[in-house]
Simulated assay, not measured.
Amino acid sequence: MATTRFPDASPRKNGAALTAPPAPDLPVPRPRVPRGACTAHASPGALVITAAEHEFARLFGLRPKEICGRGLFELLRSSAPGRLREQLTALSSGRCRRVTRKVTGRDAAGREFTAELTATAVRAPAGGTTGVLVLLRRTETEAVRRTGRVDRAEVTDRAEAVDRADAVDRAGAERKEAVAGAAEGDRTAGRPVLSALDAQVLEGVASGESTVQLASRLYLSRQGIEYRVGQMLRRFDAPNRPALVARAHALGMFAAGQWPPRVLPERVR
């Protein structure tokens, strides 16, 4: 009895093992910021403000460069300060991911305001907490909730304080600050010094992160990332990102033998 044999189409015997197509490299979604909320970044552990939006600084009658270096507990108070400190300490150490509390602060006119604080831990790809994202949403005062009216004098005083604070910063205050910081760092015996945020951007570029990935991880816009990278390209006289990383290595900016790359603490102001 004749039998018909069919060729074996097994991928193993033909030496062509099937593999699943690679997953697309999708950007990490940025967290949704509630309406009326403003953000700042704080260092883990010490909870010192390292970067802040204009709106965040304006709540306290300060400019962004003035609020940097202030401690979170210096700016905000809680009805249970011990509990708030315990929760934020647990957030910094990685024992929890988010803290939400009612807090109070003082505006430029010295008036107390209430706000809702939401603090979220920023995780590094290799594990560990690299920072704390602080969202602050100012809530209505008791007088507004009770009467439905806003104190015009309070609004006027606040607007005048905001205008005074913004008079110097309008039309590119951050750019002036970055240029001034770069010039100051370059004068220190050929040992350039970066701001904390620029150091994180440089570390991400050296690790091969894209603009979208950096913007998502650092909670900045893509234009903000491109602006900071462009500033460093001009500062280090580099034509592109690989040349920027090579130049930073040549200047001894990175810790030797460490991956992912980390800027030396003495090179961060």
Score class of each variant (00 low, 15 high):
Asp237Pro: 09
Ala23Gln: 08
Phe113Glu: 05
Asn14Lys: 06
Pro21Tyr: 01
Glu154Phe: 05
Pro81Glu: 03
Glu140Val: 09
Ala80Ser: 09
Glu112Val: 01
Thr4Tyr: 12
Ala206Met: 13
Gly71Arg: 02
Ala182Gln: 07
Ala119Gly: 12
Leu214Asn: 05
Ser216Gly: 06
Leu18Asp: 03
Arg95Ser: 15
Thr50Arg: 14
Leu220Lys: 09
Pro29Ser: 02
Gly105Glu: 03
Thr129Tyr: 04
Gln231Pro: 08
Ser93Lys: 11
Pro125Arg: 00
Val150Cys: 15
Asn14Leu: 14
Ala182Pro: 01
Ala215Ile: 05
Leu251Trp: 00
Ser210Phe: 06
Leu264Lys: 13
Glu53Gln: 10
Ala248Ile: 02
Val229Asp: 12
Pro261Trp: 01
Leu214Val: 02
Ser195His: 13
Pro24Gln: 09
Arg164Lys: 01
Ala153Thr: 03
Leu72Gly: 05
Ala9Thr: 00
Gly224His: 06
Pro81Ile: 00
Arg35Met: 04
Pro27Thr: 02
Gly128Arg: 01
Gly15Ala: 07
Ala143Phe: 07
Ala153Asn: 09
Gly94Asn: 11
His54Glu: 15
Pro125Met: 00
Ala180Trp: 04
Ser216Val: 06
Leu47Glu: 14
Leu220Val: 08
Ala206His: 07
Thr139Val: 15
Glu66Lys: 10
Val132Thr: 13
Gly190Pro: 12
Asp107Gln: 01
Asp107Ala: 10
Val122Met: 14
Gly181Pro: 09
Thr120Glu: 15
Leu197Asp: 04
Arg106Val: 08
Pro34Cys: 04
Asp157Tyr: 03
Ala238Glu: 05
Ala121Val: 10
Phe60Tyr: 11
Tyr219Gly: 07
Arg149Leu: 08
Ala90Phe: 12
Pro27Cys: 09
Val144Gln: 11
Ser43Gly: 15
Arg247Ile: 01
Ala246Arg: 15
Ile225His: 13
Ala159Gln: 05
Val162Thr: 03
Leu75Ile: 13
Gly105Lys: 11
Pro261Cys: 02
Val162His: 06
Asp166Ala: 02
Ala180Asn: 04
Glu53Val: 03
Ala16Gln: 06
Asp107Arg: 02
Arg262Gly: 05
Ala57His: 12
Glu226Cys: 13
Asp237Ala: 15
Thr141Gln: 07
Arg85Asn: 07
Arg70Phe: 02
Gly131Met: 10
Ala80Asn: 05
Val155Met: 00
Arg170Phe: 01
Ala90Arg: 09
Leu84Arg: 06
Phe56Val: 04
Leu194Phe: 14
Arg222Thr: 13
Val263Cys: 07
Pro44Trp: 07
Phe56Lys: 02
Ala250Glu: 15
Arg63Ala: 14
Val48His: 12
Val193Gly: 11
Ala57Asp: 09
Val150Gly: 05
Val132Met: 12
Pro265Phe: 12
Leu244Pro: 03
Gly252Val: 08
Gly71Ala: 08
Thr19Val: 13
Pro260Lys: 01
Pro64Tyr: 03
Gly127Trp: 14
Arg70Asn: 01
